[in-house]
Simulated assay, not measured.
Amino acid sequence: MGSRHITETGIFMSSFAAMVFVSGLITVGVSLLSLLVALAVMLHSCESRNSGVLEMHRYKDNYEYCRYFALHAELNSLDADSLPAMCRDIDRLYVKEGQYGRDLNITVGIAEEFFGSVRPQVDSRDIVLIDADDLTSETLFSYYLTHRINEDPLHGNSRDPDYLRYTFARKLYLKLQSDGWPLILFSRKPEKLRSAMAEYLISMGCPGWSSLIMRKENQMQMGFQEFISGQRIILQREGLRIIAVISSRMDALRGPYLGNRMFKFPSPMFRHNMENHVESQSREE
């Protein structure tokens, strides 16, 4: 029997070369994997960005719809139940995203521009009517009545609508006071709370008003629009000149003798409608 030789063909590779080759394959694999991850992240980012843009457009459309709906509700003194449910989320974003603060700042700027062009006459008969309830809120005033301490539980809370409204209303109040305008405040609270209200306003940094108009017990059944309109008539008959009325509520900005200008602080949609509802309930009780 003869011997049989088998010849195997292949590529001879040293262990070092094999290690380099395998390392290269691993590097290429890692690079491809990194590229795939990067592409996935970019695609996700694009989707999120497009989703954000669509969400922003949707928010703006809904906001405009809710804003006009709320305006008509406020003009007609409708309560919060008249507003669509989707407007609740829009209302929260209105405050949270800072638009409410910007609107308040614009209102103060418009008022300051007007008062920068006029001056009170020397006979001291020019007056400005300011809604004292914009310098406080039911929550803050109730807290003060309970604790009787000069402490603001909402201090620095830039996302609370009551605190924002108070901050800008006080800014305008102090500006008018420093310019020498006689200020007459009015409130929807009853006369029996006059002392507490006066103390509270002073504690919140709003002293120096000329007078504070509040309803007596037998006037609480009267709608506030009717009441404050009657008070403006009395002021006119006393020879006072109403230069402006400043409020966040429509009931103070209707009726006769509203002066040369009216300035309305903006309100969150559900906030002013809830206040209207509370006002109507207080008349029924």
Rank of each mutant, 00 (worst) to 15 (best):
L35M: 05
P84W: 13
G52R: 15
V122I: 07
H44G: 04
P84D: 14
R254Y: 01
R283M: 13
S117P: 00
F265T: 04
L25H: 07
R58W: 06
L43D: 02
L185Q: 07
R188I: 08
L253H: 03
L129E: 04
G156I: 08
H147C: 03
R283C: 05
N273S: 15
G109K: 01
R58H: 11
V20L: 13
I110P: 00
G208D: 10
S282W: 09
S124Q: 12
D91H: 06
Q99C: 08
P84L: 13
E226R: 12
H277L: 14
F186W: 01
E138Y: 01
S203Y: 03
W209H: 11
V278W: 09
L75C: 02
V122S: 13
A196D: 15
D103Y: 06
K175E: 08
N157S: 08
I228W: 04
T139F: 15
N218W: 06
A132C: 11
D91I: 05
L129A: 03
G230S: 11
L129S: 01
D162K: 00
S45W: 14
R261Q: 13
D162S: 11
M13N: 06
K216P: 00
I233D: 13
H44Q: 11
G29K: 05
K216Y: 06
S142L: 10
I90W: 02
D123I: 07
D81A: 14
T9P: 00
A111S: 11
I106H: 07
M274E: 14
R58D: 13
P207F: 05
V28R: 09
V122G: 03
D131H: 08
F263T: 04
R249L: 01
D251H: 13
E275F: 03
Q236K: 15
R125V: 03
D103E: 15
D152M: 01
D126F: 04
I149R: 15
M250A: 13
F168Y: 15
S229L: 04
M42Q: 06
L164G: 08
E279I: 11
M197G: 01
I242K: 02
F115D: 02
M19D: 11
G2D: 14
L135E: 05
R159Q: 14
S45H: 12
D133S: 09
V28I: 15
P120L: 07
N260I: 01
R249Y: 01
L240E: 02
T146Q: 14
L78H: 07
M13F: 06
R170E: 01
V118D: 05
R254G: 01
A40Y: 08
M56P: 00
S34N: 11
S82I: 05
I11F: 08
D123T: 03
R92Y: 12
M56N: 08
L212Y: 05
L33S: 15
E97T: 06
L135Q: 11
E275P: 01
L129F: 09
P268G: 09
K216E: 12
A70P: 10
G2T: 11
L174R: 10
E199S: 15
P268V: 07
I149A: 10
R261V: 08
E191W: 08
Y173K: 05
L154I: 06
T107H: 02
D133V: 02
Y200K: 13
A18G: 11
R49E: 13
R88I: 08
L176C: 08
R159T: 14
D81K: 14
R261C: 01
E55W: 03
V37R: 10
L83A: 10
M250K: 14
S282Y: 10
L235T: 02
E8V: 05
T139S: 12
D89N: 09
Q177V: 00
S117W: 00
R241V: 10
D123M: 04
